[in-house]
């Protein structure tokens, strides 16, 4: 990395943060667009967690939505049945998802990358079955409605429900925190280990690095973010059902990562920002929107094989005059 790139990068990050925080305010009185913004932030959070595993360790956890579901159901049950505050229930839900994620990630310790991906698909369908089969906690496929918004108590100002633009701002902050966590992890020595494991786990093991430990940690953090997103989703949309967390949701989150650019920090954000709003914005084209979505994915894969960001980044670098070495796209950090 040359110094010439540092300034634009810092400026870009500052701009992005400002934009993320300003957007909910800008659309505050158009609740529909505000909702799309909120949903997009949730997907930024989710893709960050998915990216940590799929982009940096090469393990694609397609039971990701199931884990988000566990986070959501644990949180909602704690809040609605046990009367626990959302701010306590949400971390508990996230940890529950993380623990389940680590357990379900165990096959990954034995399975070579892609077999794990396919078997995680099966794990996901088992989780969906369980959600439907235990209506005591999930109310089956009728779902849980009227989930209350989290409340916030400010000293001297009393208690208020977190609604409207405040909720979207909260989601913006949560999404940024998630991206920050993933960025820190990948920038640390851990991150280097994770990539080493992705590239060649046998060799990495031979170098004396505890491959298992790092994979477990990656699973933990990734699933934690999945669960956290699930908890926020439940209380933001105010409704959850097993269908909110089915295999298509998993595949969609992963598609956003791949669409934007695996293994980069910005790529998944780009993917989420482009793809998450599509179903909402193409309301009037409801007969064609799935087709448009699919065509977009195919076109990007054909013409920008490393994802939108992963493919544009090297060009951007070249334009900025940085003497970036030609690397395989999709395998570098921003």
């Amino acid at each position: 990395m040359t110094d010439r790139l540092r300034v634009p990068r810092v400026a870009g990050v500052v701009l992005l943060v400002a934009l993320a925080l300003a957007l909910p305010v800008a659309v505050a009185d158009r609740r529909f667009y505000a909702f799309i913004v909120g949903i997009t932030f949730l997907h930024v959070l989710w893709t960050a967690g998915m990216n940590l595993l799929s982009g940096f360790t090469g393990l694609i956890p397609l039971m990701y939505a199931g884990l988000a579901g566990i986070g959501a159901y644990v949180t909602v049950n704690l809040v609605m049945s046990a009367g626990v505050s959302f701010w306590l229930a949400m971390p508990l839900g996230a940890v529950a998802a993380a623990v389940v994620g680590v357990v379900l990630g165990l096959p990954a310790l034995r399975l070579r990358g892609f077999y794990f991906t396919l078997s995680s698909l099966v794990i996901q369908s088992a989780l969906t079955l369980l959600f439907v089969y235990f209506p005591r906690f999930t109310q089956g496929d009728t779902g849980i409605s009227q989930i209350p918004a989290p409340t916030v108590t400010l000293p001297g100002l009393g208690t208020a429900a977190l609604t409207g633009v405040w909720f979207e701002e909260t989601l913006a902050v949560a999404a940024m925190l998630a991206v920050l966590v993933v960025w820190r992890v990948t920038r640390s020595r851990w991150g280097a280990y994770l990539v080493a494991i992705r590239e060649d786990d046998v060799l990495t093991e031979a170098l004396g690095i505890d491959v298992t430990r790092f994979r477990v940690i990656a699973f933990f953090i990734s699933s934690l973010l999945a669960g956290m997103g699930g908890a926020f989703y439940a209380h933001y949309v105010a409704f959850v059902s097993p269908r909110s967390f089915d295999v298509l949701t998993s595949l969609n989150i992963w598609l956003m990562v791949a669409f934007g650019g695996r293994g980069t920090i910005a790529g998944p954000i780009v993917g989420a920002v482009i793809l998450a709003p599509i179903p909402y914005l193409l309301q009037d084209l409801y007969l064609y929107k799935d087709i448009i979505y699919g065509v977009l994915i195919v076109l990007v894969t054909v013409f920008l094989p490393a994802g939108v960001w992963g493919s544009l980044l090297p060009r951007l670098r070249a334009r900025l005059g940085a003497a970036a070495p030609a690397r395989v796209p999709g395998k570098e950090f921003v």
Partner: peptide
């Protein structure tokens, strides 16, 4: 390519699912 193909075929699946549903 296994990963690239998974993306592409998911795109295809979406296209076909969209066509069938409409």
């Amino acid at each position: 390519r296994n990963i690239v193909y998974l993306v592409v075929t998911l795109g295809l699946a979406q296209i076909f699912a969209g066509i069938f549903s409409s």
